[in-house]
């Protein structure tokens, strides 16, 4: 059902009810990647934590469970001041956003 023969693509089914707001949501996550990278340069962990927290809360609600999971990683790492984990999570998010393909159902 969700399985795909192309491993480079992450297919996600999203309720068509919310179709109108999904592209903007994903676009905003791409902006988050750049924002977090900038924040990291000046060690602004508390701002990073809030972004992670929101990501965690919204991602799965939209149907993007991976985004929630990445958000949680970012939130927790920001609490511990763990720059490296945040950086790799941002990479993972960026990668995910590149590969995700939304199917509205």
């Amino acid at each position: 059902m969700n399985a795909t023969p192309y491993p480079d693509i992450i297919a996600v089914e999203i309720d068509s009810e919310v179709e109108s707001i999904v592209p903007e949501f994903l676009e905003n996550r791409k902006k988050d990647c750049a924002t977090i990278s900038n924040l990291l340069e000046r060690d602004a962990f508390s701002e990073v934590r809030i972004l992670g927290h929101r990501m965690k809360g919204a991602g799965g609600s939209y149907g993007f469970d991976d985004i929630s999971e990445i958000g949680e990683i970012i939130e927790e790492a920001a609490m511990g001041g763990d720059k490296q984990t945040i950086a790799s999570a941002v990479l993972r998010l960026s990668d995910y956003l590149e590969r995700v393909v939304v199917e509205y159902v």
């Binding site: 109108s20 707001i21 903007e24 919204a58 939209y62």
Partner: peptide
Amino acid sequence: ENRQLMRLL
């Protein structure tokens, strides 16, 4: 984003 989502749902 969350408010929009909930409104739609």
